[in-house]
């Protein structure tokens, strides 16, 4: 097992290198660069542009260098822990990410927890009651969240939260708590705002989870050993918990790695609508403004999270399914 883990860690290196190259390609793809975007925005509002500032910036950030040079200087920076400089915010990227990480974790983890709990409950429930009315009803509820476009759902929920509960429009807390130290009131204010993004992002993820759990559980439940066990009079609940559910959780676990980027993607759109100060939103803004180092380092950061997540999920998979483990792991 140790050797397997070491191997996997080693394999991560080329993966991350490839990711970094793709990330850089992506942030270079849109035409123009940050300064052009900035100039266009300024001029379109009739604002004069300080050509000197632009020229100085161009020089300072090496935007005149060839993309290859820019890539390597960025990559070496990354290796040394220098995530680069954000043009838009005029600060080091690491500071920016650091500022948002707490709220991002709160939102992401609440959401993942929500997805797991809801899909686990509904998924197991419907799989054991295939084709019943309650199966269809529960499935419908599980899917509704997926079917509703996130941004509209968020908008409507936000409006009604404002109308009914007098929750302030947008943001993760009331305006007066911004820039304030953490306090009881601030916590409550965050909780008051948090449920909307969690539900909106969460419901779009639960449907997939429910489906996979249900599909796998149904597969499993029809296998011989289950029939045998049932024939031998094993208690249905014990039977369900002992083997089929665990096996059915296989792809469930395999998805730890992919659920994270999904939640972050989802949170980005919702964050735009709800004006949440979380990383997903900043990433979108950075991409839009072509704030390349911010966007790039950010994507890199997320990609790393996912790569580690995938590794963990593979390990968990191996631990859970002896067949995979005994035959030497997924990579063999």
């Amino acid at each position: 097992m140790l050797r397997y883990i070491a191997l996997r860690l080693l394999v991560m290196i080329p993966t991350l290198l490839a990711v970094s190259a793709i990330v850089f390609l992506i942030i270079q793809l849109p035409p123009g660069d940050y300064l052009e975007t900035l100039i266009a925005e300024m001029q379109s509002r009739g604002e004069a542009v300080d050509q000197n500032q632009i020229a100085a910036l161009r020089q300072a950030y090496g935007l005149d260098n060839s993309p290859v040079e820019q890539y390597f200087s960025w990559l070496f920076g990354l290796l040394q822990g220098d995530f680069g400089w954000s043009f838009e915010h005029n600060r080091p990227v690491s500071e920016l990410i650091g500022q948002r990480i707490l709220l991002t974790f709160v939102v992401t983890f609440s959401t993942i927890l929500f997805i797991w709990v809801v899909s686990f409950v509904i998924g197991t429930y419907v799989a054991t009651r295939q084709y019943s009315v309650s199966d269809h009803t529960a499935t419908l509820i599980g899917y509704l969240g997926l079917a509703t476009p996130n941004f509209l759902l968020a908008l409507v929920l936000m409006y009604f939260a404002n109308q009914w509960f007098d929750t302030s429009i947008g943001g993760i807390m009331n305006d007066e708590y911004r820039n304030q130290p953490w306090s009881w009131g601030k916590m409550l204010s965050v909780l008051e705002h948090l449920w909307i993004p969690v539900i909106v992002i969460g419901t779009s993820g639960t449907a997939g989870m429910i489906r996979r759990l249900r599909a796998n559980l149904l597969d499993e439940l029809q296998k011989q050993y289950v029939v045998t066990a049932r024939a031998k009079g094993l208690h249905p609940r014990k039977l369900l918990w002992k083997y089929p559910l665990r096996v059915a959780l296989n792809p469930f676990i395999a998805d730890i790695g992919s659920i994270l980027p999904e939640v972050i993607s989802g949170s980005a759109v919702v964050a735009v609508v709800l004006n949440l100060d979380i990383t997903g939103r900043m990433l979108l803004d950075a991409l839009r403004a072509q704030d390349m180092f911010l966007a790039g380092s950010f994507l890199m950061f997320l990609a790393m999270l996912v790569v580690i997540g995938t590794l963990l999920s593979d390990l968990a998979l191996a631990a859970l399914d002896p067949r995979i483990r005994l035959s030497g792991g997924t990579t063999r």
Partner: peptide, 19 residues
């Protein structure tokens, strides 16, 4: 002066809520 940063599309909504 408290300048709150909100998405441009939310500003009318915030205004309508008296914020």
């Amino acid at each position: 002066v408290l300048m709150n940063i909100s998405d441009g599309k939310l500003i009318p909504a915030k205004a309508s809520a008296g914020e």
